[in-house]
Design a protein around this nucleic acid. Structure first.
Lengths: 256, 256
DNA sequence: TGACTAGACTTGTCTAGACAAGTAGTTTTG
DNA sequence: CAAAACTACTTGTCTAGACAAGTCTAGTCA
């Protein structure tokens, strides 16, 4: 097919199979707000005609998007952009600014460290050579002026060569990275611990406050986009996720 | 097709589409040890012949199993049972006895509470009527005699009518439930908190020790199988997960 | 005005085939 | 003996069509 044109980012010229291109196209429209939560997306038949692909190709793309939590499909009704409530762990990786806004609070962030670092020990996790450069930022996220989370993040310059030039007083790393390409996959590790004295100081919490420690590696366009560690006081954090294929009954039950 | 026969459990007679029946069949063989980690599973062509289904049907089943983390597929080579290292959050829901054994320790458990309860507040989460009966067990899991985790679990009698009759000195709830049917989906919520005095006492930890609190609802055969809360001292727990489709490069990088 | 039905739409599942891309083992060649 | 080529397998992707199952809306009838 002529297919949806994927906008530029690093290595975006690498060809993707058609079903993946369609996924990226729809994911981008959702991310950009052109398809809003709750809105019906074009039917399979409409997408077949629009992109000159087979219905199985469309179905594969939409099934994957549903698995990712980006959309919800209902037999006989249609496919809809998922609403704000998280139905998938992938979608759970939301912009902290949005999480805070959804609670009726105002997000702000204070950059504590912004640097290009060469030969970082994190390079192996980023898929970079040992002596390569990567970007490292440390941000304090606040809600209504109150510290809620410390974000320690390394970013792959091959994916986001202009990352270091962004103004993180005005945007968040997540929002910027997602503007380049939608998430393809994420790995995370969840632990609980007490904060280091430095982090406890930044968060303004007693040093014996349990915190959630979430380490996350995100992938886009077949590259590691970033590796991040997020430290949040426990009373302010709750990570939810869904795996496998929930049956329709799941929609009718109260959330865990 | 004649199709793989799904062994009996509650409501197992409910028909499933062929691709799901094939998934269940293969998942059962893995769970039962008839297909071992690292072992190659029959090729798509072999499964087409064996079950008299189309290759698309087989491919759909195997793709879903890969998404679930149960198997790994390599173009041109074959499909293999995933090795012990978790590659998917769904597979991450492992038997705690096995986790402890994998650390070279001996698992044991002490039942603290076993009862049938009527009118539990958990019934809504289980998908049961408000005044229905459900099963409730509280177990202390130990490694080499040392307490590591408190498991608070409610089980749906429609899925596991004989649950309450099991000897949890000899098996674990997880192992028993998985023997009835493989996991279809799981929802979880991760939090961090200090333990209650009662739980701190059971775990033998100081009351200011941060703990991971994992709440989980599992689905099998389109039913809620159980709802569980697992409390683990932080130095003993680490939950990992993968979402979306990792590219092949992910296999070559160190784990997060 | 309400109930029922038919039609038109949707997604869910399945079949059969084709070609691409990748891999591993075997055979041939230098 | 090593390298190259070939063969036979594997999974990856795509097409086209069919039928099932579900939903919604409009029209008809009592």
């Amino acid at each position: 097919m002529r297919g949806p044109v994927i906008e530029k980012s690093a290595l975006a010229n690498e060809p993707l199979p058609q079903y993946q291109r369609l996924k990226v196209h729809i994911a981008r429209q959702i991310e950009a707000g052109r398809l809003k939560p709750g809105q019906r997306i074009p039917s399979e038949q409409e997408l077949v005609r629009e992109f000159s692909v087979s219905r199985m190709t469309v179905s594969r793309a939409l099934n994957d998007l549903e698995q990712d939590g980006a959309i919800t499909r209902i037999q006989g009704v249609g496919s809809f952009v998922s609403t704000g409530k998280a139905e998938s762990a992938l979608l759970e990786i939301r912009d902290i600014a949005k999480e805070i806004a959804d609670r009726g609070q105002t997000h702000s962030s204070r950059p504590l460290h912004i640097a290009e670092e060469r030969g970082s020990s994190i390079n192996a996790l980023l898929g970079l050579d040992a002596d390569a450069a990567c970007y490292h930022t440390v941000l304090l996220h606040l809600a209504d002026g109150q510290p809620v989370q410390v974000e320690d993040r390394w970013v792959n310059p091959r994916f986001a060569p202009k990352y270091i030039a962004q103004d993180f007083n005005r945007t968040t790393p997540h929002r910027y990275l997602m503007s380049l390409a939608p998430l393809q996959a994420a790995e995370h590790v969840f632990e609980a611990d007490l904060p280091t004295p430095e982090v406890a100081g930044w968060l303004g919490i007693p040093k014996n406050t349990p915190c959630t420690i979430l380490r996350r590696r995100t992938w886009s366009l077949n590259l590691v986009a970033s590796v991040a560690t997020l430290v949040t006081a426990s009373h302010r954090s709750r990570y939810a996720g869904i795996f496998g294929s929930l049956p329709p009954l799941a929609k009718a039950l109260p959330r865990l």
